[in-house]
Write a protein that binds this DNA or RNA. Structure first.
Lengths: 298, 298
DNA sequence: TTATGCTATTGTAATAATCAATTGAAAGAT
DNA sequence: ATCTTTCAATTGATTATTACAATAGCATAA
């Protein structure tokens, strides 16, 4: 099997187009690099580099393999980074994945405290839909997910963070605005605006409504919660929004009405792989988030 | 940086949960594998494996890093697979550059055979003037050029394909039409229509004529051979056309007359960079082209 | 206690990677 | 033309790494 070192040599040549400079960048002598590249070429049975007297360029095979080589190096770097992160559980990088209907509304409440609480952790925030989040967690690209708990996630470990009620959003002119609260039954025969497929908000919250007899507007499915909000404000229909998405936003012409019991809600959990190594770090994250949200929700 | 071999050892242990069996699976002795794992652990500063007397299991850090290790191995395997796929020298892309006074007249004769002869090669045809072709070859954008050989190209490798004679083109009404052949000397005091600058046809073929005393029509320089042909048909002057451009074309009012010896001609060669890696492929191309042209020219 | 099953250690051999010095070939400079 | 310069390949010696066979060490099971 190829050696990572050889691939590094290859990448260095691609970058510098000069054996001497590439060798210097790899902290080895020129003959070393030259020899190793030749050995790599022999091993693969391919000429990767076209040597002209004053010019070094990659062959077509070289160009194509460079792409693969970069992937290998990238994976190796991630390995090393993970190893480093495991050395001090309260230091290193932490990749957090969130769903799009949560990230922009939750993060402002928690991010400052998180950074203060864990000064040596570099937070990386990733916004993807549930399916992609789970895959990325499985592949080790992400360390933590923050999303609504679903039964299919039972193979993962979980910390419940908070319950987020859904709120009815309708235009100011809508008859519902006369009421202090609405009940699910009120939704019967109402036209509901929805998000596009793949958003768990759609599957989950709107499920409540459909079973209460609400009808979906088939002509339109919003890409984001914000589009949805503006559609509601334009009196195109009503929708359910998660509570956090109704705070700190200035859209006129729109009204948010709480539900009477039973209140539809989602449980937002922090999800990690079973046996995830940096539990100390995770516990810090959980306490930081819940204390940040104290007074905001729950 | 970590070594792929070590990661393979680690994966083998994860799979077999037994040093001896893992070693066997890796075709090494147990002490070798044992030692390398210990070295890996020392290098990372982490304990990856929990050794109990009758049981081997991974630590949490080990479980975490196994995920990353698998990604590295996967990337490395993809690299090797790509390399294997590139082994066939008669596969891949081939970018051929031709000059405008040759491409449309040569390609119809050779392209079908080429595609049949090299079914796994994707041909890309580029039509540019000589200067740009040479630059593109130098930069690696093109693999092969097909053009008239010039002395300034001596730094490149070359396969001569064929000699293409020049033919005199004149209107049907022109006095030359009485003759079976013309000699260069006949061109004295004739008005010659030419291509614009940059076409090697101009510099080369028409050089013959000028030195024989022909005069250039300064008012007009054609952009393409086809414009030139129609100008001749309209009796605006005479010109030299390469032989291949006189085949299979239906322009009335025009006559092509061969030269008596010495016949002006150009040598069309296939040109590649010195040290180009896919010589097998080039040889196939050369034989395919020359056999396609058998009977057409030379 | 003794036997068994497994990993770690030790000492040595084989393999591979490295370097300094030099060669060889092509391009520029004089 | 001849001399430099430039740069990759080669050579030969050295060092580092990896590998193996034999065996020690250690815990459990008989």
């Amino acid at each position: 099997m190829v050696k990572i070192r050889d691939l590094q040599y290859l990448l260095a040549i691609d970058e510098h187009r000069h054996f001497g400079k590439a060798a210097e960048a790899c902290f080895v002598s020129q003959p070393t690099l030259s020899g190793q590249i030749i050995k790599l070429e022999q091993q693969l049975g391919l000429t990767l580099i076209e040597r002209q007297t004053r010019k070094v360029m990659l062959t077509q095979a070289g160009e194509e393999l460079i792409l693969e080589a970069r992937n290998v190096i990238k994976a190796a770097k991630r390995f090393e980074l993970s190893a480093k992160n495991l050395l001090d559980p309260l230091a290193g990088d932490l990749h957090i994945g969130l769903i799009p209907t949560l990230a922009p509304y939750l993060l402002p409440h928690i991010i400052t405290d998180l950074n203060q609480q864990l000064p040596n952790i570099n937070l990386y925030l990733h916004e993807k839909k549930t399916d992609n989040l789970l895959k990325a967690l499985e592949d080790g690209e992400l360390d933590v997910l923050i999303l609504p708990w679903l039964d299919e996630m039972e193979k993962y470990a979980r910390f419940d963070l908070f319950n987020e009620p859904f709120v009815l959003a309708c235009a100011n002119t809508h008859p519902f605005c006369q009421q202090n609260t609405v009940s699910l039954n009120d939704l019967n025969e109402q036209t509901l605006l929805t998000l596009e497929d793949g958003h768990c908000l759609r599957d989950q919250a709107m499920g409540y409504c459909f079973s209460a007899g609400a009808k979906e507007d088939q002509r339109f499915r919003a890409t984001s919660l914000e589009t949805l909000r503006y559609m509601v404000a334009s009196n195109r229909g009503i929708t359910l929004l998660p509570y956090l998405a109704t705070l700190n936003v200035n859209v006129n012409d729109i009204n948010y009405i709480s539900f009477s019991k039973p209140i539809p809600k989602r449980t937002i959990s922090l999800v990690i792989r079973q046996g995830y190594a940096r539990m100390d770090c995770i516990r810090e994250v959980v306490t930081s988030i819940t204390s940040s949200l104290d007074g905001v929700i729950n």
